[in-house]
Design a protein around this nucleic acid. Structure first.
Lengths: 162, 162
DNA sequence: CCTACTTACTTAGAATACGAACGATTCACT
DNA sequence: AGTGAATCGTTCGTATTCTAAGTAAGTAGG
């Protein structure tokens, strides 16, 4: 009886453990650098591409706009980021790193645990690629539209020009 | 220059997306059943093995005790679980499902999105096993002790009487 | 028996995270 | 130009999650 959907249970369990591990490391980061994981992720994104609107930042790090607002609030208090209303379109808020923020962003360690990253690097290339691929596959299977009518739309071929 | 640790970035990104997908589904569950993902996970655990102490429950679902307290509070309000102090050891709190809780636990869908589970089932066995294996590998690499001295302790065999 | 340690759970405080609702803007269409 | 719709960010309320500190209860040594 136990052993039927064990696979699903296992996966759920693994996902939970991964989430937890990421969270625990975020807290450790926070203790050491006054910066949490999500905050660092945002900083890195801004380091790569700034200035950026709050919404675009949210999208690029897979967080909701509402969440980004809070993170930016805290980063702003620390003098890490600067918010500036766009003059052309005053609805937009352009976010960029302060000087201090840029410096910090290059110093702070990855939001992925150093130990994990290290182990990852030690794995044979082939193995690493498998991990990457599988995770993306899982993401793909999970993210698929939350739309109910799935089989109905079957005859709808991609009108995409993509 | 960009393209070196792309793998790490990809993985981080995938993990974030997975976390988000799980969270989003939890909210959907919450809307439909007044039960969130973690709440359902706890209920299922209790369905499989009850009564159980709060601490053991926390451990078995990879959550801290403090977190379990909050989840149990809300489940208790809904009349889904029952808390009972252990008579032998009054520090312990035994948790079990109410009648209503048992019924609900069998009805409520998996905390993993139905769509995802479905897709998973449709994959060839081999592929599913790979996913399970890779996730467990990732967990293994992440969970490894947060202790700094890793190589040093190598020759230290368990002096544990555990 | 009393003190010190340990264990089990709860409480407090902070950050993340979401949806929903809101205000300010801008856009589209008349 | 003017009105209704769409967009952008923030605010609000709720839940999850952790650590640290607190409380209650059991255990062990003197």
């Amino acid at each position: 009886m136990p052993g039927r959907n064990n696979l699903e249970e296992n996966i759920l369990r693994s996902l939970r453990k991964i989430t937890r591990a990421v969270d625990l490391y975020s807290r450790q980061l926070s203790r050491q650098y006054q910066l949490t994981g999500p905050q660092v992720v945002c900083m890195r994104q801004l380091l790569a591409d700034a200035p950026m609107t709050a919404g675009k930042l949210a999208h690029s790090v897979s967080l909701s706009q509402a969440t980004i607002t809070g993170i930016l609030d805290r980063l702003e208090v620390q003098g890490v980021v600067v918010r500036q209303r766009c003059t052309q379109d005053r609805r937009r808020v352009l976010v960029s790193l302060s000087e201090r923020g840029q410096e910090l962003a290059t110093k702070v360690p990855s939001p992925l645990q150093e130990r994990f990253a290290e182990r990852l690097r030690k794995l044979p290339e082939e193995n690493r690629v498998v991990i990457d691929t599988v995770l993306q596959q899982v993401v793909g299977m999970m993210e698929a539209k939350n739309i109910e009518a799935e089989p109905i739309l079957q005859s709808d071929p991609p009108p995409v020009i993509d």
